[in-house]
Design a protein around this nucleic acid. Sequence first.
RNA 1: GCCACUUUAGCUCAGCUGGUAGAGCAACUGAUUUGUAAUCAGUAGGUCGUUGGUUCGAUUCCGACAAGUGGCUCCA
Length: 643
Amino acid sequence: MSISMQFPDGSVRGFNEGVTAMDVAKSISEGLARNVLAARVNGKVVDLSRPLSHDASIEFLKFDDADGKSTFWHSTAHLMAEAIEAMFPGVKFWVGPPVDNGFYYDIDLGDRKLTEEDLGKLEKRMTELARQKNVYERKEISKADAIQYFTDKNDEYKLDLLQNLADGEITLYSQGNFTDLCRGPHIPHTGFIKAIKLTNIAGAYWKGDEKNKMLTRVYGVSFPSQKELDEYVALLEEAKKRDHRKLGKELSIYTMDDDVGPGLIMWLPNGTIIIEELEKLAKETEEDAGYHRVVTPHIAKESMYVTSGHLPYYKDSMYPPMQLDGETYYLRSMNCPHHHKVFAALPKSYRDLPYRIAEYGTVYRYEQSGELFGLMRVRCLHMNDAHIYCTRDQFETEFRAVNDMYLKYFKIFGVDKYVMRLSLHSPDKLGIKYVDEPELWKETEEMVRQVLINSNIPYIEVQDEAAFYGPKIDVQIYSVIGREFTLATNQVDFAQGSRFKLSYTTADNSTDTPLIIHRAPLGTHERFIGFLLEHYAGRLPLWLSPVQVKVLPISDKVHDYAEAVEVAMRKAGIRCQLDDRQEKIGRKIRDAELQKIPVMLVLGEKEAVDGMLSLRRHGVEGSESVKTEDLIAALRQEIDNRL
RNA sequence: GCCACUUUAGCUCAGCUGGUAGAGCAACUGAUUUGUAAUCAGUAGGUCGUUGGUUCGAUUCCGACAAGUGGCUCCA
């Protein structure tokens, strides 16, 4: 019997039935056969050793393919397990999948401990095993036999996995002395794995549940060549240079102190300038969009959070209450209840809607200590918060306007690497994590989905990420070390309006409850500035730079001229500093460059005589001669347009 | 909160197996008046995160606590 294989370029060739994908690869070229890791047959990734019995489309996967990489890393996880089992006989394995940047394996080490020194030994052992070119062998096994096999091994973890597998779909993979329950696929043999780095050891709860036992998770990454590993390591080091925690210190943006407390940011003068620029942008934007600005206190009585419904859901992440005058007060962890009270302060009619109120609100959240992370996850934060109270008919327009506001901001900051996430509830957690209104959930989720579809915004849908009061759109970003955060959020709230008995008079003189939109396009100052530092690698645009211009006189013979230039800059509202230290010009330039000052003005006797400036831009070698008033006009324009 | 690691001068870091610490940069002082990424010399700086214990003696070994870091859980 002959079967036909269709290749990605559309060409079709015939092969004998039972031919393996590897045979097909060999028939194309030896070079391909040497580098190919797995095959995609009719869209499904399979081992190269699998016999093919039907007509199919076939594609060969190398390391540069995402699925090829995953297969490679998955196979490396098995190799690591083999090395760990050799080092610690009797350990038990849970799962060892590939992840975005490598792989991990969760292991129950019993009462033994794995140290960082062991990682080096493991890498060595893995390299030795890899050189043996051990073949990854696939074996189909009945469920009964599999249960017998793992019962004999006393392996409760694999037995647990087997519970959810049906007879006939169970396979074992073996390489060298290691056998694992695994659906595959795998690379042909361990010899492909040329460079290995075990990156860290971490704890991970079994099945991700904190009530369960904590297993030891070992992370690693591997490559088909040492060169690729070296490049990867260099990339990581590059990324570390733009870590906001490092830049925040180098550029004197913020500080923290043990005496103040964990997760509590103190903004230094430089950071405060960034904050003020961001708030200026937000105020302008919100004013244009018809928002009113309000100011509300940082604390409130317990009763308000009972009304809002926050308390049962968020008590654990609020700072403990304080007792005052026989009342219980909480530091707020959200602004919305205060804003609802602002809405309720005066009677509203449909003519007042949409009613939009904004505040850079300070909130306090008692985040778990292990979760704190630089500026990205803190305990005192300043939200670019606003609430929009509107009718059902106005909802789509308002919600879209908020989305447009995001996009406007993102354009200003050149933000393009983000994922829009439609965050939905999880029906099995109604009444636990989400208000128990199944119909309203369905309705509002569809409403939000339609807004996204109608505005042609690419997005993903994820369950169990909604707020307790409604679905939302979150803008997900990644820190340089790869951690995911919600930068901005746009949320529907169908619950709090009625809880607070908010109402407005309709056109036919009845009353109705407004729908509420919670939104924070600029997220919080903390997270947003952390993000911006990494996004710009510390090279903030002129309008955000704490110091925009540095005047660098060559000697103090031109001090008067330098001072005059500085004064002129400051008069034009440009943040300018004079470096009048008795240092050589090279030194002054170096220091200004390291501080990432956008504009440097070198002034010597020549400039003083001509009344000119020697302009040098950060990161740009060489200089040009300009007139003070021309430069001021140009900088002013750049700043005013936030370029 | 859980697992692991880390904590030495303002910053970045060195300090083998226990005998109370060192460098570079920054700071300060003096000299130098300088042309596009580090001028030279000198001075000063630390009860080695805190706190118990072991020891004749602890920065070093052990415990507790705190903070930070990598994950897990969580994330309004």
